[in-house]
Design a binder for these strands. Sequence first.
DNA 1: CGTAAACTCAGGAATTTCCCGATTGCCTGT
DNA 2: ACAGGCAATCGGGAAATTCCTGAGTTTACG
Lengths: 215, 215
Amino acid sequence: MSIKVVLVDDHNVMREGLRALLKNESDIEVAGEAADGRSAFRLVSEIKPDLVIMDIALPGLNGMETTRKIISKFSDVKVLVLSAYSERRFIFRVFKAGASGYLLKDCAFEELVCAIRTVSANRIYLSPEIADIVVKDYLRQSSKNNTSGFSVLTAREREVLQLLAEGKTTKQIALLLKISVKTVETHRSQIMDKLNIRSIAELTKYAIREGITSL
Amino acid sequence: MSIKVVLVDDHNVMREGLRALLKNESDIEVAGEAADGRSAFRLVSEIKPDLVIMDIALPGLNGMETTRKIISKFSDVKVLVLSAYSERRFIFRVFKAGASGYLLKDCAFEELVCAIRTVSANRIYLSPEIADIVVKDYLRQSSKNNTSGFSVLTAREREVLQLLAEGKTTKQIALLLKISVKTVETHRSQIMDKLNIRSIAELTKYAIREGITSL
DNA sequence: CGTAAACTCAGGAATTTCCCGATTGCCTGT
DNA sequence: ACAGGCAATCGGGAAATTCCTGAGTTTACG
């Protein structure tokens, strides 16, 4: 019996492309598609697929919340997340929501097929890039508080991060916080280590995404 | 003779999906693909396709700048932008850069095929959603207003800005662009002078607001 | 042809980052 | 009460980067 799959992605060409590619796999049958979270949930309720290929960025109800809803109601439906994002917070939340796999849109199609088969066989699938991040987190024993990426940083670190993301120099921050430049440097490198980021530019983007600063 | 097409998108599955779909169209031949702007330009230089299907959000050199480079060098290559974004500023710039068509990833595959044929027949293709925006702008004669700080920077400066906003170091940028570190420094300080900005953090925010890089 | 603008590059001083190590205080489990 | 972990603080010194000043080359255009 073939694996009944539902595609959820807000881009039509993406869905059509996947459908075309999957057509060649005899053991995989695309039973339906949805362009947003809410209709995805309805669709799953209707046709009870074996597996859902889920994008994260969805209008209305995002992929993480959709996954949560689906799994909590239909615990035997597998969700395989196919996302453009490799950020920790997404990964963590997705698995917390009950997903069985996570791979990047950047991957090869063969990997997707492999992931589908792995997940439908009741196993977890992690693409190498994601595995890397997950393992790093595991080694840091910090996975318990990655819910928002917010809590991996200490209060002081978030404070420094915000100032960095506002364009303040290390010296300005030191003056502002009335601590030594050296301490600010330590905080900055600590932040970068934790977030696995190596530049102010990416740090700024992170801060924006996390709502720590604004555009 | 079939239309020779190059696919440019940073997501592998997207490219593979498109390739699979386009395989069924006998008059369209996918001659190559690229995952970022710079290699896209190299690829186009090599194989001289009839048409390039171009994503906007690309690492290193974004779709707008890549289009500009391609068109200015190979004026007979058509560029069809296939983007997730429908913001004015992207549309305006893309056409300013010389693109022949713009459609959303959200479109049906049939529309993409139609657009490819239209564009390769030397005509402009606008998907309905985009046409809507363009017409509205036209009626409002506001197109001049859409350059917003966009024109203060030169093409080279925008190129450097994007790389800075992606977290690249001066040295990395120099290597990438095959110019000296000193030149990159000059560009950076020129950019900062023009924008009256004094930090990478603010520069990054500016680049995000201007659609030169993405979060 | 002359001018302005874009792009390129360098020297050297000033500043910042980076990589080590270290201290203090607080909380936690036993 | 004490060991251990962690957050927050700070420093030295080498390495790297930025900043400031100046300038050559190419390109576009009137």
